[in-house]
Each structure stands twice: as structure tokens, then as C-alpha cells.
Design a protein around this nucleic acid. Structure first.
Lengths: 243, 243
DNA sequence: AGCAGCGAGACTTCATGCAATCCCCTCGTC
DNA sequence: GACGAGGGGATTGCATGAAGTCTCGCTGCT
């Protein structure tokens, strides 16, 4: 099963990396020709990779113009994070209810990794551990399809330096949002885990939306997440009545 | 913006239809050559379409063997429906809380369509209205990405005659599961809408899992959905304590 | 100065060639 | 009779050619 790595895969990974790292700025226009020339392969694998990227929503193909790197709009961020809320909040609650001691140890290890990276000022490592932490929480549920979906959602908005790192929050703040999630899971408190995961995602989304906002693309309302909130997960007390 | 329909798109749609309709049985092996010959196009658009189908999980590409039509395993059904629960249950609750009168009218129209198709014995039309009903509920949320994802999830397991129609349930039973959902939305009762949507999805998933079960692929446990249930949406009373 | 029409360039898109790879079947040997 | 090796055949995967189509800039006219 050593799925031999094909040229298309390498091109796909390379392009994805170039887009996510910001080497290809959002809105820029490229052609299959130039990309093929740049990567020193023929146009076919490039075309196939671009088609798949278009499916993932990272680029759009403009007929007879080229492929344009998609920027993230406020609506994009909102759509993605609503989905992440719908998936990751229940996942966090489930993890709290069903995590083994080994799972908890893994979570705390990732948290330590984030802490170390934060003190070392290593943003790259910090992001890696951040991602791994979320994936470890999702892994408790054991739904590979959900895992893959969350990863795709994450990719689709992490274009460019659209990380929240530089502009808005520092690593300590982000770390601070993750700590209570892990603490709640370790305490087997599903309610708290869900609440903290929700707060983390909403916080991140709000900042990303503020970054993506432009004069015409309307600024995000403050309580944007409330519309979904009462229907997501009700931590304590009775289910909130409709409206 | 009249996105000209390209050959690849037509091939993709055609193959998808052939797989979903059961014309290409699950597990069967085809080659790009034969498919291209069959559809009277060259191998390139067929290859591109197949790659996208592989991304969607409908087929797997076996190197130097051909493309194999993926059957659905019990695990597949479970993964897909867990995700659908996480998305569609909140969506139903949200729809109940925020649907306009026009939305409700649309829902009832689709329900009528299902009823007519049921009495006429038209399974194809019934399926169309079933799908449209779910999409209309999702449309109230207005999250296109979520809509698209649900559609993809639906496709990925509706391979073959894996509809629940023939073997297990008749159209009246399925219709009967949809009626209370629409009723609850019309009554603006989010709690009931969520509960009925959940019951519908769990019921459908259980039947599909029973169909997909084989001697070695373990039969689905009865209370399989319970593990997620307390973390999904808590209709009434306090949140269930973590275990 | 502004606008319309036209031509050249470029890009996507589909078709086909070609090589490398892998499976399977047969034949030979133990 | 069983096991292993080798060859034929088929398939994927990459490269390149050819054609159709759209965009953009230039030129000429108003």
C-alpha cells in the first residue's frame, strides 16, 4: 500500500504550500503554462492539481484568463467556522466524555508543545502543535471523514498570512484559549469542553473576519455566532427556547 | 458567467449518474480506455473526472488495474451519518427558529411532492423531492458550504440501489418521518424539529448500515448513535452529564 | 479626447503519443 | 501436485500537439 507518490501529488502539495504560505498572493493570476514551467513538469499534472484545488475552493479557474488565487471573504470565514463549530464542539464534548488517559496525555503533550513554541517564539512549530491538538481531540471521535473535513476547512481559510498570529493575537493568547479545553477534557467535563471549544472557535473566527473585512464586504456583526449557538450544544440548564 | 459546460463536466456528471444509479455495480473495475470509448471522448477528460470522483470518495484508483467503484461499508455509512447529524440537526433547529412563511410554504410543497410521488409509485420523483426537502431546510441557514458538504455526503453513500427504498422501507414510511420535521418547523418548534430530524437520520442510517453489513464487516450495534447523541443537541432538560 | 472595431496573443481544453509499471497467466522445475 | 519465475498484455501517468475561444491592447474614426 505504499501509494507511490505521483507527479500530480507533488504538484498539488507544492501549489497548496505556495498558496497557504502566501508566496502566491490572493487575487494573483497565474497560467498553467507558467506554473508548469516553474515546477518543471508538463501542463497535465499541473492542470489536474489545479482542478482539485478548485474543488477545494483554494483557487478559481477563469476561462481564458488563468487560475486566480482565491482570497478569503468574510462570508467564507463565517461559513467555514459555522461548520467547524458544528463538528468540533460536539467532538470536544465527546472527547471529554470518552477520552482515555492516553488521549489526555497526548493532548497535554501537544499543549506543552504549544507552550514551548510560544516561549521560543517559533510560530511555525506553534501552528503545527495547534493543529495537532485539534486533530487529537477529533481523533477521539474516530470519524476519519469528519477529521478530513475539518482539515480541509482549516486549509481553505488559512490562505496567506491569514493566521491570527501576527496581526491580532500573540501566541500566549491563543495558548490561553486552548488550555481550558484540555483541562475540561482531562476533568471529563463535557459541558465545559464544549463551551471552551466554542469560545475558542468563535474568537478565532471573529478575528479572521475582522481581518477579511473590507469597506464593501460588510464588517462582521459582533454577535454573529449567536444565531447558531442555541442550536449547537446546550451546556447547562434547559434548552434555550427557539428565539 | 454562463459557465460553459465542458466535456469534463459532462463526463463527471455521466459517471456519477452511472455509479449512483447502479449501472456500474460496486466493486466493478473499469479502465479509462473503456470509459472513454464508451462515452466517445478522449481519455483526458475521463481521467480528470475520475480523479475528482476519487476525491469525492466514490471510486478508488488502483494503479495499473483500473478504477474500482467503491461500495459502502458500515463504517462509511456511520461516518457519513454522524456528520449529517452534526450538520443537519442544528440546521433543522435553526430553520424552525428562523424560517420565513415562504420557507414553510416551500417545505410543504416538497412534502406534497413526496406525497404525490408516493401515491403514484414514482420512486425517482420521490427521491428528488426528498433531497429537495432536506436542501430547503439547509437553505434557511444560508451556509452554502454546509449545503455542499451535505450534498456530497449524501452522494457518497447513495451509491447503487443503496437507497432504503426497495429493501427496507416503502415510500410511505419515509414520508412519515419527514412530516413531523416540517410540522415542527412550521410550528417554529426548534426542539421538536431537531429531535425529528435526528430520529429520521438515525433511522435511515441504521437501515443502510444493516444493508451494508457483511459477516466480517461487523453488524451495526443497535444504539450506535447514542455515543454522539448527548453532545449534539439537548432538546429539553439539563445537558446530560458526561457519562 | 473618447469610443468602437479589429487583430494578435494567450490561455484553456481536448486528443493522442509514449514510456514505465504492475498484474496475471503460463510454463518450467522441484 | 505445488511453487516460483518469466513474459505478455493492459493500464496508468506524463508529455506534447492542435484547435477553439476569450481577452486585451492598438488603431482609426468621430
Amino acid at each position: 500500500m505504499a501509494a507511490r507518490v505521483t507527479t500530480t501529488d507533488r504538484v498539488l502539495a507544492s501549489l497548496r504550500e505556495s498558496i497557504l504560505s502566501g508566496e502566491f498572493p490572493a487575487g494573483s493570476l497565474h497560467s498553467i503554462y507558467r506554473l508548469a514551467d516553474l515546477l518543471e513538469v508538463s501542463r497535465t499534472p499541473v492542470r489536474e492539481a489545479v482542478l482539485r484545488l478548485a474543488d477545494l475552493g483554494l483557487v478559481t479557474i477563469e476561462r481564458n484568463r488563468g487560475v486566480r488565487i482565491r482570497g478569503v471573504s468574510v462570508t467564507d470565514v463565517r461559513s467555514v467556522f459555522e461548520l467547524r463549530l458544528m463538528i468540533e464542539v460536539p467532538a470536544a464534548a465527546y472527547a471529554a466524555a470518552h477520552a482515555t488517559d492516553d488521549d489526555v496525555r497526548l493532548l497535554e503533550a501537544e499543549l506543552d508543545g504549544m507552550r514551548d513554541a510560544a516561549t521560543a517564539g517559533d510560530e511555525s512549530a506553534f501552528t503545527v502543535h495547534d493543529r495537532a491538538l485539534h486533530e487529537t481531540i477529533g481523533a477521539v471521535l474516530g470519524n476519519q471523514r469528519a477529521q478530513h473535513e475539518v482539515a480541509a476547512l482549516r486549509d481553505s481559510i488559512q490562505t496567506r498570512g491569514a493566521s491570527t498570529l501576527h496581526r491580532s493575537r500573540g501566541m500566549p493568547e491563543i495558548l490561553g484559549e486552548h488550555v481550558p479545553i484540555v483541562t475540561a477534557i482531562a476533568a471529563r467535563d463535557a459541558t465545559a469542553a464544549a463551551r471552551h471549544m466554542e469560545e475558542h472557535l468563535v474568537s478565532t473566527a471573529s478575528l479572521l473576519m475582522a481581518q477579511a473585512a473590507t469597506p464593501d464586504d460588510p464588517a462582521p456583526e459582533s454577535g454573529w455566532a449567536d444565531r447558531l449557538r442555541p442550536h449547537l450544544y446546550v451546556p447547562d440548564g434547559a434548552a434555550s427556547p427557539p428565539e
